[in-house]
Design a protein around this nucleic acid. Structure first.
Length: 495
DNA sequence: CAATGCTGAAGGGTCTCATC
DNA sequence: GATGAGACCCTTCAGCATTG
């Protein structure tokens, strides 16, 4: 090769091809320098704090990668490491951009609700904890370059380049991912744990859509009951078929406590930058809640962390468990979303000064609110809770009565006090009117539906006849699927 | 309808060690 | 000194029961 001397000490060797392209000379420590004549096209001075965006092409395989590299002073030149590319024999480097560390850390601000610039939500530094960041420390800067429709990132001490799309759409998928990561995402590392393939798929879809992290490269591990320890292969095949992940840990994560028949999948994205991007999105949803459709975030949160609780025979409430240390901001976040639907969220215990250990946000919903909540479909991605909530609501006495009530039917006054008492609250909701038709002692009332009442009953009937059967069918299909992988339990505790 | 109490287990934090 | 990858361990919570 026709090496010619560099400008610096005559020791840097490289071959300049073009204004921005060169063949590097790779030293024994896998470092190479950027030719001075190329460097000065990008920056006026050789400072210590520069970061470069380089396109590195392997001339044998013709494959190229765009990578962010921190530049280091090396004598009078600036060098970068090619250790990561040490397997490539014949490479050519094109300099795309050079910026100062400060410029790489600067983030644009944006109030856009149409397309959210990735750089407006990506934090400038990684933190050792997730949103809401209380007691969290800034750990290391995240260097970011915008190029065409992508953002290339690396953390200062990291060696994994992450590529994001330049803009994130505030659509359904993003809102769901925000809710899901808020509920189930790792607090310290970028991880995600869940036993529902549907939920895992939403998260993976989001990550694949907006980053270069692909699902078949993600590390996963299966958490399951000890009785499944001989079925590692079945479990892996099941999860591969459902979410397309093939990279599993060498051992199962066994526990006597696991209940899911297909185990719980633990994903490790191995990227602080990804975790921080997701936290940035959650923060955006918190700071500027009108950006996202709240019902999709709610669906994420409830599918992940919520559960419908049948408190009494007549009453269903909804729990979301909060983190003991961060409950206040978590509560505010959920409350902000829920209140936009006119639903009231409360904390238990109601007096925060009495907090011993467990804090949860609860929706103490009356029948009417619960019906609205059911139509909102908060548990959309959690088959079991989704069916459970619908089944419990549809079996409530008041629901059954409302569905079976005929417009214009006559009822006895005595029944209003006993079995048909729920009619009074239906009247209070203005769904029906009770018109007295005969006097004491054998009072009779005629049930007259209001227009609103007829309409709501029709929606509810449609739900009972068309929507709820689908929930059940999905649950059945899931059991059949488990059977195919020989994972169906005889006593079937998980379902 | 609202709030508190209780208990086994579900889910998530933390550790280790090699690597950059 | 931070990150990535893997493995282990323990704290917080789901869901019901009871009381206000």
């Amino acid at each position: 090769m026709n090496w010619r001397n560099g400008l610096n000490f005559g020791q840097a060797k490289y071959e300049v091809i073009d204004r921005d392209t060169f063949i590097p000379y790779i030293r024994s420590d896998f470092r190479a320098v950027i030719p001075f004549e190329i460097l000065i096209d990008f920056t006026e001075q050789r400072r210590n704090d520069l970061v470069a965006l380089l396109k590195i092409t392997d001339r044998v395989s013709k494959k190229s990668n765009i990578r962010v590299k921190k530049l280091c002073r090396s004598g009078e030149s600036l060098s970068f490491s090619l250790e990561k590319e040490r397997n490539l024999k014949d490479i050519i480097v094109k300099v795309l951009s050079i910026k100062t560390v400060q410029d790489c850390v600067n983030r644009m601000s944006s109030n856009s609700r149409e397309n959210i610039p990735t750089l407006s939500i990506l934090p400038s530094h990684t933190s050792n904890y997730s949103f809401p960041y209380q007691n969290s420390k800034r750990v290391t800067p995240i260097f970011a370059f915008e190029l065409e429709d992508a953002v290339y990132c690396i953390s200062h001490f990291g060696w994994k380049n992450i590529i994001f799309k330049k803009e994130i759409m505030p659509d359904e998928l993003t809102a769901l991912a925000i809710g899901l990561y808020f509920a189930e995402g790792g607090k310290v590392t970028a991880s995600f744990t869940n036993s529902s393939p549907k939920i895992i798929n939403v998260m993976l879809d989001f990550i694949e859509q907006y980053s270069n992290i692909e699902r078949d490269k993600i590390n996963a591990r299966i958490y399951c009951h000890t009785r499944l320890q001989n079925k590692k292969k079945n479990l892996e095949e099941f999860w591969y078929s459902q979410v397309g992940i093939s990279n599993y840990g060498s051992k199962l994560h066994l526990s006597e406590n696991s209940r899911s028949p297909c185990g719980t999948l633990e994903l490790n994205f191995c990227s602080q930058i990804l975790k921080n991007l997701l936290c940035g999105l959650i923060k955006k949803a918190f700071d500027d809640p009108l950006t996202f459709d709240p019902k999709n975030i709610i669906r994420g949160i409830f599918s992940g962390d919520g559960c419908p609780i049948q408190q009494t025979k007549y009453f269903i409430c909804h729990h979301i468990t909060l983190d003991k240390n961060y409950w206040k901001s978590q509560f505010d976040f959920i409350d902000k979303l829920i209140s936009r639907h006119g639903i009231q969220l409360k904390t238990v215990p109601s007096n925060p000064n009495k907090i011993k250990d467990q804090i949860r946000a609860v929706i103490y919903s009356n029948w009417y609110t619960n019906m609205y909540f059911m139509f909102l479909d908060p548990y959309r991605f959690e088959l079991i809770n989704r069916e459970k909530f619908a089944r419990r609501f549809l079996s409530l006495e008041k629901t059954r009565l409302f569905l079976s009530l005929e417009d214009g039917c006559l009822i006895k006054g005595i029944d209003l006090v006993n079995g048909l008492r729920p009619l009074i609250s239906l009247r209070n909701h203005d769904f029906i009117n009770l018109v007295q038709k005969s006097p004491k002692p054998n009072r009779k009332y005629e049930v007259q539906f209001s227009e609103n009442g007829l309409q709501v009953r029709k929606i509810l009937q449609d739900f009972l006849n068309n929507v709820y059967p689908k929930y059940r069918k999905e649950l059945e299909n899931f059991k059949v699927l488990l059977g195919k992988f020989d994972l169906l339990e005889k006593n079937n505790r998980g379902c």
